[in-house]
Design a protein around this nucleic acid. Sequence first.
DNA 1: GTTGCGTGTGAATCACGAA
DNA 2: TTTCGTGATTCACACGCAA
Lengths: 361, 361
Amino acid sequence: MSFELPLDQIFRGDCIEMMQMLPSGSVDCVFADPPYNLQLRGELRRPDESVVDGVDDAWDKFADFATYDTFTRAWLGEARRLMHKDATIWVIGSYHNVFRLGAIMQDLGFWILNDIVWRKSNPMPNFRGRRFTNAHETLIWAARGPESKYRFNYQAMKALNDDLQMRSDWYLPLCTGNERLRNTHGLKLHPTQKPESLLHRVLIASTHVEDIVLDPFCGTGTTTAMAKRLGRRYIGIERHPDYVEAALGRTQREVRLPPDQLAITPARREAPRVPFGSFVERGELPAGTTLWDRSRRVKAVVTPDGSLVSGQQRGSIHKMGALLTGAASCNGWTFWHMERDGALVPIDVLRTTETALRSAG
Amino acid sequence: MSFELPLDQIFRGDCIEMMQMLPSGSVDCVFADPPYNLQLRGELRRPDESVVDGVDDAWDKFADFATYDTFTRAWLGEARRLMHKDATIWVIGSYHNVFRLGAIMQDLGFWILNDIVWRKSNPMPNFRGRRFTNAHETLIWAARGPESKYRFNYQAMKALNDDLQMRSDWYLPLCTGNERLRNTHGLKLHPTQKPESLLHRVLIASTHVEDIVLDPFCGTGTTTAMAKRLGRRYIGIERHPDYVEAALGRTQREVRLPPDQLAITPARREAPRVPFGSFVERGELPAGTTLWDRSRRVKAVVTPDGSLVSGQQRGSIHKMGALLTGAASCNGWTFWHMERDGALVPIDVLRTTETALRSAG
DNA sequence: GTTGCGTGTGAATCACGAA
DNA sequence: TTTCGTGATTCACACGCAA
């Protein structure tokens, strides 16, 4: 049996069983924080459903890895089925499990886009002085397959980083203080609650408003709460009733940001396409006008159909830019300039004016 | 057949076959930079139309993941046989291959101690704006097994990091400039030459003077050269004759530091923003350099872990400044000077560069 | 000598929609 | 499924030459 896709809900149950009931190709993004260690939470079972007990001689270590791998293949396989062709997935782990996660993801056909390092500003020190301070965790960001046309909000990430490309190493604090959920005894409710800043960056980078986000290991609901705040739709799955209760209350209390605060720096490739010829038609750049490159080394003349002519050659603004410079390709909008008050101005200013008019009207 | 262990040599040949001829349990540390199995699909151009010189060498091409895994299991298995019970291994990779490396290492019985992130100060940007800038690579540090009594020079690492525990994220520049080996046409000799600062930290962290270090993918000899400089014994294996020739010459020219400059030591120091040790690692203020006070009344010598030595005394730049002047305390950054073009310049100038400032964040 | 500008380059899985 | 046209896209350094 299979449900219609339920939105903005958090379910209690085994994530593999729950995912099996959801329809294929229905989610835009998955965020998963799977158990890091078999012995910790008793969530792991062998394929025959017997529970793994924690013995640590060499033979059993191998059995543990095999069991962990089986479990990992099962939930990643279901998650992949639920993802539509262009969806992406984030999986977080530490050196205990992340290598198995990554290898299995590759085996299942996921196409890794980046591995992201979450550098903790306040990690726990190494008390025994026998290793380097374990100051980071790793996120694997992957598309469903190599041909996916996945979403990456490049300009938004650049804006988040002082107008420099966002790198693969992120420096963020642990979840502490008021953000950390606690029980009535003041003890932390969940051992590995993720910081909201981490989910903020993940969701802003790889999803759009109204996109559907699935978290199969929902825990205390950082993903669902942040999805709601940022105007994304969410589906959470969590096995432990206490965590489900906390996640439900927390997400319920969360308030969706108003639309004007949800807008991110738009991607230029998604701006409405305006034909160069339309400016010729309207007389804003009449046929006969001469265009130049930035340093006046090459020039061309605008024709009535919006193509350019230079000598015997004729073509679009892009084709002519490439042709005259010998480049493989060329963005004609930024290459060609027109004279305005004696100075050269890129013809792209025509387009930005147009865009402004459209959004205003 | 099997050789006695040959020391301080670089061999040309297939690393699996060569390792098979060496005796079991004979090396203290392995550093391995295996092929990454990048899967580049076409030409990549910068926004200025220049072409990126990608890694297209035959040695990096594998038919599929299964082929790569078979190769990886084979060389890691031989490396493990050569390691004695308490030896450790370093393996470096990127998201293309590191998950497979780590999972296979765990399957073979290695015990992962840390995953280390080499954060590059100057990575190549993402030119098409379709992903996060791939700004790091990952090193896996592992013992031969869970019971290994491995070497970790905790105090030396702490000293190198201005008396703060060394973290799992390391900020180091790429190998560029004079350090990068070039052929007679000025082209890079090896597409992926590793920086000396990386090997410096690896060797200081996990080996002792006279320890035997094996590099099965020796390339142009960064490992062997740094092992010689730091007084370690080395065995290099490399398949490509051009790389072997370069590694031999480079390692030949390298000079072993004198004994008093090789000693590493515990130190208790303050923590300014930029660790003094980072300049030592990067070779901007190499071990062996003599520092003076402003009026050349006292002097001291820089050691590989970033502490100073003068006579029988050893300590941080701050402690040694205080000690040698009889003061209660001292700001080593302004007290100590280095010679530059015959004049004395405070070492604090090292910190004023953009690079230095960034290493803190 | 110093400063500043132009150029080159690094382990890279680097477009996408319409017809 | 394939072809084709449009047009989006770079950061930190090192080095050489000019002012």
